[in-house]
């Protein structure tokens, strides 16, 4: 469903990511792990078509993100690291606007806004200004935005960063629910989160993929007991 084909991104002489390839089957939930600055966000931006790679490409549901851009984009719901929200808009108006951006007709839009609000539990704050909501709720608005056009793939960049423990648990619960009907890829550097949510991980270190397997499989391969040890052994060495 999500295919990265030899993606490389070069900024000047520095390679942010190098020859990143993976294939995520439909219906799975995958954690993209790596230390800060490893290239997680770069990978995600290329997958969502917001950043062109220096070479390689990404395919979403079989559509090339740079050649069949529109079809590919329609498969993806994307929540960037900072939720792309307008503080001066109400939750409802905002989702209506995003629905409009996706070209959803006014009649259907109402229904889809309703659906997205319900899915992320925002019904009771629908008429509040986004700027007045808590961080956890803002993140939910960001999730609702990613779901409005009913994508098959959900891409989340550090979805729980900066939230308090209760909010983190709530957002995780939502992601777990979404994963039932969608393919989900999310980046994180919180290992507990990844072990709690997914079976498969892709570990990226200094712009290269150093592991891509199920947590159990990696444990066997490397002789490690848990994800923390796997992570430390695969991302050891190299210059910071």
């Amino acid at each position: 469903m999500i295919q990265a084909v030899g993606m490389t991104k070069q900024y000047g002489s520095r390679k942010a990511i190098q020859d990143v390839s993976f294939d995520i089957p439909a219906g799975s939930i995958v954690g993209l792990l790596g230390p800060n600055g490893a290239g997680k966000t770069t990978t995600i931006r290329i997958l969502t078509g917001t950043l062109p790679p220096t070479s390689g490409t990404a395919k979403i549901g079989g559509y090339d993100i740079f050649e069949e851009t529109d079809q590919a984009k329609r498969q993806i719901g994307y929540l960037p690291e900072t939720p792309p929200i307008y503080p001066e808009m109400t939750v409802e108006d905002y989702l209506d606007f995003v629905g409009g951006l996706w070209g959803i007709r006014k009649k259907e839009r109402k229904e889809k806004v309703e659906k997205a609000l319900t899915a992320v539990g925002l019904l009771e704050v629908r008429r509040r200004l986004i700027g007045n909501l808590s961080k956890g709720y803002k993140q939910r608005v960001g999730l609702a935005q990613a779901l409005i056009h009913e994508p098959k793939v959900l891409v989340l960049d550090e979805p729980t960063i900066g939230l308090d423990p209760k909010q983190i648990l709530e957002i995780r619960e939502l992601i777990r629910n979404f994963a039932k009907g969608m393919t989900v890829i999310f980046s994180s550097h919180i290992l507990q989160e990844v072990s709690a949510l997914c079976e498969r991980v892709i570990i990226i270190h200094q712009g290269k993929i150093v592991a891509n397997d199920t947590i159990a499989g990696l444990g066997r391969q490397l002789g490690k007991a848990n994800l923390e040890e796997i992570f430390l052994s695969t991302t050891a060495g190299g210059k910071e």
């Binding site: 078509g49 960037p80 690291e81 900072t82 792309p84 929200i85 307008y86 951006l101």
Partner: peptide
């Protein structure tokens, strides 16, 4: 500045 440009760029616009 606020990051909403990413929203506009991800939509098929």
């Amino acid at each position: 500045k606020s990051g909403t440009m990413e929203l506009l760029k991800t939509a098929p616009v």
